[in-house]
């Protein structure tokens, strides 16, 4: 025989969960405009513009022909876009809205849902800006761009999860640039920056796929708000204690 108190609590919890699901659907519409307005539009616009200018530079008459230089430019373009997306989770009002029933993860998902289609469109434009003779194989370079983007989002997710900072974009961008520098300094045979002419081009794609998988897993793992502290702890950054 089950305890009546336990049953009543479970029923209450089920009701709260059902309410939450219903409310989430109802809430999306009024949330769209304010969440759109909270996007870091300046960072995204600057990063997007720089990326497109880089891609367009392949059309200059004195640009070196061949897929190698095209790949280099498109990697820089992807890095530029990722640097913009590093600011996507910045929320100056984080402290003020930290304990509302509509929790941060839903707003994060909404931001992603708004930014990612635009990012895909932007990347397609960048690819089309590169002339066919200079354009590298599309699938591998798109995989690399997706992994770079996911790395930026994963770094931002970790920064939000483990610090109280409302604006994590700057530190995320610095970490991303550091990662890019490490990738450049790593020998191509073991690294991520092989060219199609290299014999280790295929294994490099597997590494990029691994980067994409791991960073997406990090995003999925640490976007939800924790109920407990867990093994990895957050740091205090408030002025008080």
């Amino acid at each position: 025989m089950r305890d009546d108190g336990v049953e009543a609590k479970e029923m209450e919890a089920a009701q709260v969960t059902a309410d939450a699901r219903r409310d989430t659907a109802t809430l999306l519409r009024p949330l769209l405009v304010p969440v759109w307005r909270t996007l870091p539009r300046r960072a995204l616009t600057i990063a997007g513009a720089v990326g497109l200018l880089l891609a367009a530079s392949t059309r200059l008459p004195d640009h070196a022909p061949g897929a190698g230089p095209g790949l280099f430019v498109l990697r820089l373009t992807a890095l530029s876009g990722a640097l913009g997306l590093a600011f996507l989770l910045d929320d100056p009002a984080r402290n003020t809205s930290a304990t509302t029933p509509v929790a941060r993860p839903l707003r994060t998902v909404l931001r992603l849902a708004m930014a990612l289609p635009l990012t895909a469109l932007w990347w397609t434009t960048a690819l089309l800006l590169v002339p066919s003779p200079t354009r590298p194989p599309l699938l591998p370079v798109t995989l690399q761009a997706a992994a770079t983007t996911a790395a930026a989002l994963a770094l931002a997710t970790v920064a939000v999860r483990f610090t109280d900072s409302p604006e994590v974009g700057r530190s995320t961008a610095i970490c991303l640039l550091t990662g890019a520098a490490v990738a450049v300094l790593t020998p191509n045979r073991w690294g991520l920056l092989a060219t199609p002419a290299d014999p280790w081009w295929e294994p490099t794609q597997l590494r990029w796929a691994a980067v994409l998988g791991v960073t997406l897993a990090v995003c999925a793992l640490w976007t939800p708000e924790p109920l407990g502290q867990g093994l990895l702890r957050r740091t205090a950054t408030t002025s008080g204690r």
């Binding site: 307005r37 100056p92 029933p101």
Partner: peptide, 17 residues
């Protein structure tokens, strides 16, 4: 969630858009 529905919180350093 149930508690947050009945909660008002003014943090020490409130942030804004």
């Amino acid at each position: 969630l149930a508690l947050r529905r009945e909660l008002g919180y003014l943090p020490q350093t409130p942030g804004f858009h």
